[in-house]
Write a protein that binds this DNA or RNA. Structure first.
Lengths: 219, 219
DNA sequence: GCGTGTGAATGCTTTCACAGCA
DNA sequence: TGCTGTGAAAGCATTCACACGC
């Protein structure tokens, strides 16, 4: 049952899942690869290839059963139960993440929020109380969190990351603008907003040749 | 003159740039592809291939001049001048982004922050005043913002996105958990935190079968 | 027919290995 | 000698095109 899926496929499955959830809510019962591709912003052959990895059973000439496909993808992604997530860093971003309602609805429970600043520790954010990062190991164990989100300054990210790893966490999502070193056994994903803007800058600059001001909005 | 760089290379250039900035600050003058690869978390041959696209001039047997390489990459990415960025959505995430100091230091000026909620419009966030999203077109024009960050609910993302595009913006970074449709002339990048966690869930679930969760994959 | 499932072909990315130059 | 720069090879990912079954 455990053949590794191509990583590009895994990323797209999450998108399909979102589209399918919307369709389920709308009472749609069947969907073609063409229609699903449309809502997901990819090609239909890409959709079919991706779904074929699940050993998915669509019906030729008809399409896929929304309900069944949705359950199939959720199971494949490991979303059959909730995941307990801890957020380290209760600055602007950490607090925003802690209050983000999109996690809940997608099967992720935020069970702890940490900060090092004693002025913040003990405060309430949403329905959570901010824990002292000195108690990281204890609280991670007590809450049985298996995923950690790092929302802290680059300067301390690596040292906190090391403690998180030592505490036995294998899944980490980092918003810190640094490259973190982790053992192979740990799964680390990185989101960096400045990087994203820089990539946009590259493409923007290739179009309007840089004068002193960045392009005029010619329409 | 400038041939299109592979997109994977562009993404890594931003990482190199960060490493090089740190080295510059530390007074390091030269760096080998091996050393740079280490800090960036990629292979050294990957670094050399990437840099060779810039027609970059390293010195054989020695390495690259940090200062020069750094300037080279910045120029390639179009970071020789600041970019004016507007953020639409002053909820938790939007406010966190508006206050994020990492943008400034990387050449991105947040020049406007919008919201639709009349209770929020007019408030100060950092050194910005929240504008009414009804004035989107006017304020975008006045501030001459050329990049827009969408930090708003999925339900309104597409309609706001359409207005942003119509206003002549060609670079958009979206945090909304939906697939947005834009013309080919627009560059859209997407960041979705729930998606990232789902991808982590997939890998986590492939390793340890969860103990207290219901259901395991059928044989 | 129609739309899935899938080999085969194309294109993109990374790695290898080594020539070439300080 | 040491490290860059780069063709050639290997490894992924996407697209094509069409057989197949409803």
């Amino acid at each position: 049952m455990t053949r590794q899926l191509p990583s590009a496929t895994v990323a797209r499955l999450t998108v399909y899942l979102r589209s399918l959830s919307a369709m389920l809510a709308d009472g749609v019962e069947r969907v073609s690869s063409e229609a699903l591709a449309e809502t997901a912003g990819v090609s239909s052959s890409n959709v079919r290839k991706d779904l074929s990895y699940l050993g998915s059973h669509g019906t030729r000439g008809v399409g896929y059963e929304v309900q069944r496909l949705s359950g199939n993808i959720a199971a494949t992604l490991g979303l059959t139960h909730d995941w307990r997530v801890a957020i380290v860093g209760a600055g602007n971003l950490g607090r925003a993440l802690a209050r983000y309602t999109g996690f809940e609805s997608r099967g992720f429970d935020v069970v702890a929020l940490f900060d090092a600043d004693q002025l913040i520790v003990g405060n309430e954010v949403g329905w959570l109380r901010v824990s002292d990062v000195r108690d990281l190991e204890v609280v991670l164990a007590r809450t049985r969190a298996t995923m950690v989100v790092l929302a802290l300054p680059g300067t301390v990210a690596q040292q906190v990351c090391d403690r998180v790893v030592a505490a036995g966490v294998h899944s980490i999502l980092s918003f810190a603008p640094v490259v973190l070193q982790v053992p192979d056994s740990v799964n680390l994903r990185k989101v960096d907003m400045a990087t994203e803007l820089q990539i946009l800058a590259y493409h923007a600059q290739r179009i309007h040749e840089p004068g002193d001001g960045p392009g005029r909005p010619s329409a």
